[in-house]
């Protein structure tokens, strides 16, 4: 594929990834990133973290180099990262590659010893303790990786309870909540498995879609594996009413190629 075709990531109509009009202290938005097992969203989340910190996703830009990182203004926006599948070391390595000061971000480790620390506790207590760990900053951004795992980790937790006790309080704590969810489960045929768990997972994903301003979906090619394409990134509007006058999400579909540490975007 020709390098000339490489495109920049744009999500909003003002040609930005995360618009400056967001995180203004009065709005609480949600961006949902859905992915499958084959298409991990690490690169996309990294790009979004970069956008919050530097204003531009340098890792996705063709002309990005180290000098630009120094020139790029580091914003005062607070960034909190929380993962149920990755530990501090993984996040630190990612931030280091992006040349982001680790002290600028807060990491809430929901992987290391999560089970040992929370076994036997009620769901209410566990979720309340978790929410309290996040700093309150209505201008800040929270990244949440795979919160749906809580439906498997906590006993008898329903989608509604998870929304009520975890997602909504977190949305209130920040200006922008970015959730990355593995929606591979959706592909399971419900006719054959009438499991309550599957219904709860689907309800959780659908609730998030309704709350989201933007939905970004990463999926592999329908035709299978290709050497020059990893998958497609589809940007669509979420179910939430757009409360901004001047901006709106631009629906778009990119092809992308992730190789080693770099990702390139192409128009479909």
């Amino acid at each position: 594929m020709n390098t000339a075709q490489k495109q920049d990531l744009l999500i909003f109509s003002d040609h930005s990834v995360i618009s400056n009009q967001m995180c203004n202290g009065s709005t609480h938005d949600l961006i949902l990133v859905t992915h499958s097992e084959a298409t991990s969203p690490t690169w996309l989340l990294n790009a979004l973290v970069e956008t919050i910190v530097f204003g531009v996703p340098y890792s996705l830009k063709a002309e990005a180099n180290s000098s630009q990182h120094q020139v790029g203004k580091s914003s005062s926006r607070n960034v909190s990262l929380c993962s149920f599948v990755h530990d501090l070391k993984f996040v630190e390595n990612s931030l280091m590659k992006l040349k982001i000061d680790v002290n600028q971000c807060t990491f809430i480790d929901c992987m290391t010893n999560f089970i040992v620390n929370n076994i036997g506790k009620s769901n209410e207590v566990t979720l309340k303790t978790l929410v309290e760990k996040f700093p309150t900053n209505t201008n800040g951004t929270i990244f949440l990786e795979q919160p749906e795992l809580l439906l498997s980790l906590l006993d008898d937790l329903t989608s509604d309870q998870l929304q009520k006790m975890f997602i909504i309080p977190l949305m209130k704590k920040c200006g922008l909540l970015i959730i990355a969810s593995n929606t591979g489960l959706v592909a399971i045929d419900e006719d054959h498995i009438a499991a309550k768990e599957l219904t709860e997972f689907k309800r959780f994903f659908i609730s998030n879609m309704h709350k989201a301003l933007v939905i970004m979906n990463l999926k592999p090619l329908d035709t299978g594996r290709a050497k020059d394409i990893t998958g497609t990134l589809r940007i669509t509007r979420g179910g939430k009413h757009n409360s901004y006058d001047k901006i709106h999400p631009v629906e778009n579909e990119y092809l992308y190629l992730t190789k080693r540490d770099s990702t390139k975007l192409f128009y479909r």
Partner: peptide
């Protein structure tokens, strides 16, 4: 049950990552 096997594996993953 999903709510038993996943915490078990999550705990083991956490241990492996701790001593990565």
């Amino acid at each position: 049950k999903l709510q038993n096997i996943i915490p078990f594996l999550h705990g083991i993953r956490s241990t492996v990552k701790q001593y990565s």
